[in-house]
Design a protein around this nucleic acid. Sequence first.
DNA 1: CTCGTGTGCCTTTTT
DNA 2: GGCACACGAG
Length: 774
Amino acid sequence: MDLSNLNSEQQKAVKHIDGPLLILAGAGSGKTTTMTHRIAYMIEQGVNPAQIMAVTFTNKAAGEMRDRVESLVPRTRGMWIMTFHAMCLRMLRYQCEVLGYKTGFTVYDETDRKSLVKRIMKALEINEKTYPVSYVISVISNAKEREQNSEKYIAENSGDFRANTVYQVYREYEKEMMRNNAMDFDDLILNGVRLLEADPEILAYYRNRFQYIMVDEYQDTNYLQYKLIHLLSKTNRNLCVVGDDDQCIYQWRGADIRNILDFEKDFPEVTTIKLEQNYRSDGNILNLANSVICNNKGRKEKALWTEKKDGAKITYRRLPDEKQEAWYIGSEIDRLHEAGYPYSDMAVLYRKNAQSRAFEEKFSFRGIPYRVLAGLRFYDRKEIKDVMAYMHLVENPDDDVAMLRVINEPKRGVGAKTLSGIQAYASGYRISIYRALCEAQVMASLPKKAGKALQEFVQMIQDLRGELDNLTLVDLYDNILNRSGYLGALEAADTVEADGRIENIMEFKSVVAEFEKSLENGDEAAHQEELREEREALAKAGFPVDEPTPLAAFLERITLMSDIDNRDESEDAVVLMTLHSAKGLEFPIVFIPGMENGIFPGTASFDEEGRLEEERRLCYVGITRAKKKLYLTGAETRMLYGRTDYTSESMFLDEMDKQYIDGETVKERQAKQGGIAGDGGLFGDYFYKGRSHGTEDGYSGPDGGKPFDSLGYAKKQTRKKFSNEGLEAGDKVRHPKFGEGMLIEDSGKILTIAFDSVGIKKIGKGFVNIEKVD
DNA sequence: CTCGTGTGCCTTTTT
DNA sequence: GGCACACGAG
């Protein structure tokens, strides 16, 4: 292995394989390079890849690490490089029964969890004003983080009367989650720990399996994640953690900075290596970052340095309002683009998602291609969640959260009254809503209109479940859109909003298609193959496990995926995202707008001492994303919640060493180029639909990609209906999933076909295109 | 009993 | 500015 382009500290880290290792890696100090080389080096030294685990916080970081390791060594099979959540999910997929869950449990995302808590609070008649849902959720989440179930939670907070209310919700929440056979994100980690603690044999299996463990961004681990890692590495002690206390920006989510500060206490025999040379940013940028972060107390003393030249000064501009702020950044982007920088070299990093709107409007107007990451996650959009709920229902009809989401979507005449009747019956008999709907006496009790619609609804789910094995995922998707009436309702609505939703649904279809294609012979196939090996190994060790369906695999993949993972780096577009999601990324040119007190640092950070330090670390993270050029901007007035307020310049600007900044006051700028001031109104009220403009949407037509109505084409494809009539026994036919075969019988509703590849199958009519060949 | 229109209330940050 | 709730018409 060639380590010659690593510095001596990096080399030391790479070669330290056995025993605990703490790597304090400053921003841009080649952390990922060091980690990937370390893994590759281990493999080269004869460590079996299947004994290595590397844990990260984001899918993106995991993917990048995997790619880079794979480019260094030929054999990486069996290695676990994934997020904490994915890792726990994988272990739990195999053995959740130990904890009382049924195989194939569902993972609830934040939206699902919120709707469930809401429902419970309504049922318990708890006032959402005195107990905001977000508050209740955060208390429950914190309790889980301390390994308190509802009983333990109340036992330890018995004096607190608010705790009693939360307790009632929490207890009900636990029950519902079990009944729905579901886990939320917190549960994944918590149950991961519980699984290892529940069965010494399982613990021994994984301890033996993972001889070498690495944790990225260790400063952001919370207590449970800490515990999980320590459980696994306690005996073999080959734990390597990498982190930077200056980049801990998730304390609000339970991250405990002490985990990294106290690592030396946990492992007294630890070797500590500091990486302080920065390879990313020009001198001015790095010095600016240092001048900010040194205002924090309670940090490990370190000083990043660079051999790079000073580079360009940081530009600071304070503009009249947020529209002109966006306009200014847009004009700089245009200017830089003309000077030769591709759009993808530039990123706008803001404190909160709500700030993105102004940029989207101005960039659209200027014709700057851009991509918003997160914000509303693409998968969090209502229409996508709805369609996914249908898919979940087909996979697991007992999923009440999915059921409640779509039972009246599109409108089936099922209102609050009807619904509560059904729910009362279901909870009375302790069955799911779907089961309740299957019972004749429930159906009979419903109002006429709702009854008929629900009858069809239930029938649809049954039909789809019946055909599930015969359908490709894309065909299933089309069938859901048509049969549920979801697409039809959107088309009938004929509003700009509905059109946007249709567009998203069609975009999601290409996600489905891509996944399916990759399942055939892409990355996903390799991934599934690894999972199969994994299951076999477990079976050999005496823990047999089931195989998941493609649909389940797809749904799972989506819930753990965020927008950021989906970024297409080859796309030439400016990236917009929050400072938080930018961690771990780098861009030649970075814009940080909203340098105002109340935005950055945010309002909430003024009440608590530690909060402000965390904001400062966030500022440090933001600055250090930039390689060549950094812009800081602010607005004198900003519209928030429909009200325009005057702002004050961010206190972080006061802390910055001005020698690195090129900033003019607003007055100076206006005197020099009178053009910008006052044009805000001119471009004020444009309406842009869709996710982004100036980019292709990926569909190409049958004629090979001339400009044409791609959305219309996609819709038409989806809307296609198949009668599967006019075939005769003996005909040679082609099925989209099973390939060619011969028709044996047409019973009117069902076709019996002998396929060359899979033998005889019974295929329901009307679901997919079965074409006659020659 | 359901669906469409008007008043209050907010929002960090994410797997 | 947008979403969740409360209110009256069909």
